[in-house]
């Protein structure tokens, strides 16, 4: 099962690179730099899913308890931060030639920056809690509160003045059909990669637990 996922993700990533760099047409106004868009969207899509998982897993953890939900939330948050970091980097590289700056405090960028900080804080909180379940629950409360910012990232760009483009949904300009195909391939590949990384990361966390148990039983 895991092996099939690996193979699918491998093919997916090669396909997404091909789709973004060769298959997708060149945007006439922005040129080749626009191709970053596919990776920018792919990573932010994964970050969004990851934070939704953190939110749901944290609620279940507080509600029903169970170390597996705690593990799921923590591992997913870690990947969420990783992918959001990639989103911010790709966005920055894109913005420099197009907007003329690496960064500006536009509503969407500001809310995204806050989102990034919030989940880094969550990671620090959860990591410092160790195997103290009470502190782990505090961290889960924090993760649930932090989630409030996620919809703001998407809403702010639509209701507030800014420089970030609204491409999709009402008021958005839309993209050429080939670009949409390239984007979907990229999002699918990123999702597969995320699932694999998440499963591996969860395994790692379980192994840590097993080692801790073994050490305890030896003493």
């Amino acid at each position: 099962m895991r092996r099939i996922l690996f193979i699918l993700a491998f093919i997916g990533i090669i396909a997404s690179v091909y789709a973004a760099f060769i298959y997708a047409p060149t945007e006439p106004q922005m040129g080749h730099i626009q191709r970053i868009f596919y990776f920018h969207m792919g990573t932010v899509w994964v970050a969004t899913i990851a934070f939704i998982i953190v939110f749901i897993a944290s609620i279940i953890y507080l509600w029903k308890g169970g170390r597996k939900w705690d593990i799921l939330a923590y591992c997913s948050a870690e990947l969420g931060v990783l992918f959001l970091t990639l989103t911010i980097i790709t966005g920055s590289v894109w913005a420099k030639p197009i907007w003329g700056t690496w960064w500006t405090w536009d509503p969407q960028l500001t809310t995204t920056f806050i989102l990034w900080i919030l989940y880094i804080v969550y990671l620090v909180l959860r990591a410092s809690a160790g195997n103290d379940t009470k502190k782990a629950k505090y961290a889960a409360v924090f993760a649930i509160i932090a989630f409030i910012d996620l919809p703001l990232v998407y809403i702010s760009v639509r209701v507030m003045r800014g420089i970030s483009p609204v491409v999709f949904g009402p008021g958005g300009g839309g993209i050429a059909p080939e670009m949409m195909n390239a984007l979907l391939i990229n999002m699918a590949a990123c999702t597969l990669l995320f699932i694999i990384l998440l499963l591996e990361r969860i395994d790692l966390e379980r192994m840590k637990d097993a080692v801790a148990k073994l050490k305890l039983s030896e003493n």
Binding site: E27, P28, Q29, W99, T101, P165, V166, V167, G173
Partner: peptide, 17 residues
């Protein structure tokens, strides 16, 4: 002292050009 340009929200294909 800073000049920024808003990027287009519509990404077109060069083919149409």
């Amino acid at each position: 002292d800073t000049l920024l340009a808003k990027c287009p929200t519509k990404y077109e294909s060069t083919d149409s050009l």
